[in-house]
Amino acid sequence: MNSQWIEVAIEVKPEDADAVSDLLQQYGHQGVVIERAGHFIETWEDEIPPVDKLEVRAYFPADASAPDKRQQVNDALKYMLGGRQVSEPKFRVLDEQDWAEAWKAHYFPFRVGRRTYICPQWIDPNTLPDRRADDVLITLDPGMAFGTGTHPSTQLCLVAIEDLLEGRPGLQVVDLGCGSGILSIAAAKQGAVYVLGLDTDEMSVDVTLENAVVNGVGELIHAQHGSLASLLHAARRFDVALVNILSKVIIEMCGQGLGQIVRPGGVGVFGGIIMDQVGEVEEALRQTGLEPYLRRPSGEWVVIEARRPVD
């Protein structure tokens, strides 16, 4: 991970934004930003004034190649833009911490479902005024991994976990695409005897393990780098499979035998699905031997629960 980035910002007329952004696409990390110069508008949505100046920004790592890239951007601008009126590119060094901290400032404790209570790690849960004895408290430092608990799909999965695990201790659970570990922790705190968290992102595995320890369920959660293929290879089956990823990925995994990781009589919880993709996902679930029996909607997001019939 880079600890610092170089930001290059260029002010342009709206008609030149495309050309400048195309140029910066070649040097920037994963795309560019185009924003009204001056940033803040403070006007009503239906009274937006015409744009007279835009700022195009791109970012690249502040590593050994940064001075060369900076020179290349300067040269390319000089050659490509010719007579166009654009500002001199402004460069500045940006700490990765700057925006990570900015995000934290907007993250507050909140309730989900009947008794799940999500609390950022940097807030003392004992100071929460509405804390109840039977709360399932999850303290979380989402870091850069997915799963802050604020996404409707994650919240629907948390409610599903409450419903599926209540009064049924001792279940074995897999969390495919564990991200921050929020769903694994919820399952472990509600009676699961074994939770396997898998993610193809190494950072997510580390974050899940750290969050599991912080929540006192480090011994129940086993997070590791891996995917569906590793589960199928080991012929693992679970009482509950949590798959909060994306429709496209779920459909692909169905074609690879996703249903086989759910034991007969077990349940899969599938999230990250937009409303108009429900039919396609449900059909794929049927094809892999699961029977969808419940849709949990929230806004344009849906979580589908599907059961594997007893053989």
Partner: peptide, 18 residues
């Protein structure tokens, strides 16, 4: 969440993960 999304959205307080 890495640049450009992080710095572009975090400064406006957006839930960038969403």
């Amino acid at each position: 969440p890495a640049p450009p999304v992080g710095p572009a959205l975090a400064q406006h307080g957006i839930n960038l993960m969403n």
